[in-house]
Design a binder for these strands. Sequence first.
DNA 1: GGCGTTATACTCGGATACCACGTGTCCGAGTACCCCCGG
DNA 2: CCGGGGGTACTCGGACACGTGGTATCCGAGTATAACGCC
Lengths: 158, 158
Amino acid sequence: MKLPETSEWVLHTAAVIAQLPPGATVSGAQLSEHFGVPGPYLSKQLAKLVRAGVLIGSTGPRGGFRLARAPEHVSILDLVAAVDGAGDPYVCRELRQRGRGAARPEDCTTPCALASVMREAHEAWRASLAAVTLADIVAGLPDSVLEKNRRLLLAATG
Amino acid sequence: MKLPETSEWVLHTAAVIAQLPPGATVSGAQLSEHFGVPGPYLSKQLAKLVRAGVLIGSTGPRGGFRLARAPEHVSILDLVAAVDGAGDPYVCRELRQRGRGAARPEDCTTPCALASVMREAHEAWRASLAAVTLADIVAGLPDSVLEKNRRLLLAATG
DNA sequence: GGCGTTATACTCGGATACCACGTGTCCGAGTACCCCCGG
DNA sequence: CCGGGGGTACTCGGACACGTGGTATCCGAGTATAACGCC
């Protein structure tokens, strides 16, 4: 089980976007320079966030990305699910009904116990991520970092 | 994020092995017939469980696999970790220290907030899986299934 | 009949190909801005 | 000086190759069994 490396990019990128003044935008190229990651690939991932309704993308000069709603209402789960998909890592293929030892359908009225356990664990993971928002992340950053980002973003939007 | 399909095989297989009488063993070939999955590949995964100390593998005629300890002391997490690895799905590559907007090391004394959030979520997932044992799974199976498995296993070992 | 030896058949374990998803890159469609021209 | 039109440069979005890890398979090393011959 492994999350795409781009999930880290998206999380950090969203944290920077959350520090923008209201209405301002940042382009994918600027963000890729900011973090030292491939530009086109980052844009590809940010496009997923746009499709998920987390970001809003504007084209043309002075265009770029901005949050679709307040940072308090963007959870970490929203970001991870957008870039990685919301599906359960464990998919039950009803193994108990296959092979020589297959259980009869009348014994399978209740969901597979193993699938239920895995599902609950995934729900616990999701709940843990849904409890933290972008606002929490930004609030926890040192002032020096906030100041530096503000300066860089102002210079970029300029 | 996706768990290997073999994790389902291993979970169901372990549940069947947990139903064995003490001292009895089941071969990989019998298990693959039981579930209708490729034999050699299943054995490859069970070998991981042996390396992890969950199963014990015996060679030669009448050989096979058996639990290394009581089902009450084998958690679902043990099985999943053995087949998929125990690493965190999210790996922090210290993105904050890369690129143009890199933070100075003196601002990175505390761990990355995003990495901490992801780590806690993973811990919640692990805790949820560690709370369930093979004994719990077997106890929840219908009596008809238990009886059927007992009959099949006796026929195999008999 | 009992015991040692040998041959056997069965088991696991690791080394070897194939395929899908994630990674990385590119180019095209669309749009807001800016400049220029005319009134 | 003000308004309109066109050019331009910049943006995102989707389509195209490459590499790594999961999937599937095979064959070899090792061992408890069982038969066999000998005492």
